[in-house]
Design a protein around this nucleic acid. Structure first.
Length: 487
RNA sequence: CGGGGCGUGGCUCAGCCUGGUAGAGCACUCGGUUCGGGACCGAGGGGUCGAAGGUUCAAAUCCUUUCGCCCCGACCA
């Protein structure tokens, strides 16, 4: 048998090449892989079963972690009366341009318009005011899984749609320290989740004043680097201080008998994470899904020969059953209508981490052919001990995806000390550029206007001693900042 | 919301400039041969050209309006 060119990338003609046009590649892929589709509703997408399955794994992984840290789930209304939203001044101002209004019910004008929640601080804060009386009622640690509506002007599948799905945690605490501790605990939880489950390395840090959440005291975020060199905010955790407590009158009687406002936090991650998975791991052949969130971790492609349904298929079924019994998510693609070659390409496009081929030759040798999606390596593997080997490989793929993404991130992170250096480095889509910043919002705005780059966040540990000169204005810096062009 | 581009079977697109009543490839259906990297042969089904209005004997094609989508900016998870 002639040696085949292992590096040959099959042409997926329906998808715009990633190297040619990243945006179109992304959109083509989302649709062709059947993750999501446009709907008749402007700005709203349909999450298709294959995409929703990924969301369900994200939900499960996050929900487990949220509960393991003592939080409980609840559900609050979709509608928020206008008067509630407007209680926190900064909050309304931040969200006013983005809210959808309900002004009629049936044929009657509503006395008070309702907004469709753009986030739930207002409605949840209102309820907390009723529920919290004493320090003994604290902390309140509630999470909600919900849909959110924000009237975005420009939408992109998964990354920004008018309606999206998320989880939002809302907590109330006795002290400022506790609230900060909670905020950071969740930030760390988010980082661990995204890195472990989605194999996406992230930069955790604090948002600048101008980038923080409307109404928050402090916002922290995790930022990931996409394959085109743009950054994506993957999750946020806000320390609300007493802002919302004061606006919504959430008070409790403290241990010293005094009446105090609670200290709040809120935090969320969204269906946007699916977009991040696509843009971080995807390649020219399509999706590459981290095994831990892949709807199918292994696809079995039987090689049809003669009466293969009697000869090959029973073996394939047996292997499937043994893998399923070991807890592996398996798709046995026994469709007649497609050739093996077609199925190889199709499931690569859909990002299945591991392919298992089984044909007459393999059966003779008591083996199967495994093929890794990430490296395209083909591995003849004995049937004996297969489930264990598959689990090892899935773990190895998960790890290698993370390593690869981390290497890419490091490779696309640079430092700039001077303005000249900064502007040169920031040309194109270089990824992260770390540079000292004076802390002045004016400088931040100037930098954005000149280069399109924004401060993604500020490192958690402030540098000791007086900072190097600000990259823009040369005044002493308060901190380094992670700059990038962002989604 | 500003700049640019595009809407023609399910998808990608040709036809439009120079009006004459709709095509290709892929996909789909049926039959057969195939199947270890997107198979082949034969036979079929499917669109009124984003929408509305106008010009004309005649409009996918020309004009006006409108809606939607994509890309780049400003805004955001």
């Amino acid at each position: 048998m002639a040696e085949k060119d292992e590096n040959k990338e099959p042409a997926i003609t329906e998808i715009t090449p990633k190297s040619e046009d990243f945006s179109r590649w992304y959109t083509d892929l989302v649709r062709r892989a059947e993750l999501a589709d446009y709907s008749p509703v402007k700005g709203c997408m349909v999450i298709r079963p294959y995409g929703y399955a990924i969301w369900e794994f994200i939900q499960r992984g996050l929900d487990d972690r949220i509960k393991a840290t003592g939080h409980v789930n609840a559900y609050f209304p979709l509608f928020i009366p206008k008067s509630l939203l407007t209680k926190e001044a900064e909050h309304v101002e931040g969200f006013a341009p983005q809210v959808a209004w309900v002004t009629r019910g049936g044929t009657e004008e509503l006395e008070e318009p309702l907004v469709v929640r753009p986030t739930s601080e207002a409605i949840i804060g209102t309820m907390y005011a009723k529920w919290i009386q004493s320090w003994r009622d604290l902390p309140v640690l509630i999470n909600q899984w919900a849909n959110i509506v924000r009237w975005e002007k420009v939408t992109r599948l998964f990354l920004r749609t008018t309606e999206f799905l998320w989880q939002e945690g809302h907590t109330a605490h006795e002290t400022a320290e506790e609230a900060e501790e909670e905020t950071l605990k969740i930030l760390a939880l988010y980082k661990e989740f995204v890195e472990t489950e989605l194999a996406i390395p992230v930069i955790a840090g604090r948002k600048s004043e101008s980038e923080k959440f409307a109404g928050a005291g402090r916002t922290y975020s995790i930022e990931a680097l996409m394959g085109d060199g743009r950054a994506l905010q993957a999750g946020t955790s806000h320390n609300l201080g007493q802002n919302f407590a004061k606006a919504f009158d959430i008070k409790f009687q403290a241990r010293d008998k005094s009446l105090q406002y609670i200290w709040g936090t809120s935090w969320g991650m969204t269906t946007r994470l699916i977009g991040a998975v696509i843009m971080v791991h995807g390649d020219e052949s399509g999706l590459v899904l981290p095994p831990r969130v892949a709807p199918y971790q292994v696809v079995i492609v039987p090689i049809p020969r003669g009466n293969w349904r009697e000869t090959v298929l029973p073996h394939a079924r047996q292997i499937r059953d043994s893998l399923v019994a070991a807890g592996v998510r398996v798709m046995l693609d026994d469709r007649d209508a497609y050739t093996p070659g077609w199925k190889f390409s199709e499931w690569e496009l859909r990002g299945v981490p591991l392919r298992l081929e089984i044909g007459p030759k393999d059966i003779e040798k008591q083996q199967v052919m495994l093929a890794r999606r990430d490296t395209r390596e083909k591995l003849p593997t004995p049937v004996a001990g297969l489930p264990g080997r598959v689990q090892e490989l899935l773990a190895a793929i998960q790890q290698s995806l993370f390593d690869r993404a981390l290497a890419f991130q490091l490779d696309h992170t640079s430092r700039a000390a001077t303005w000249d250096e900064f502007t040169k480095t920031m040309e194109g889509r270089p990824g992260f550029v770390v540079a000292p910043w004076c802390g002045d919002a004016v400088c931040e705005a100037d930098i954005k206007a000149a280069t399109q780059a924004t401060i993604r966040n500020l490192p958690m540990e402030a540098a000791a001693g007086p900072g190097a000169p600000c990259v823009k204005c040369s005044r002493p810096s308060v901190s380094d900042a992670w700059f990038a062009k962002a989604y």
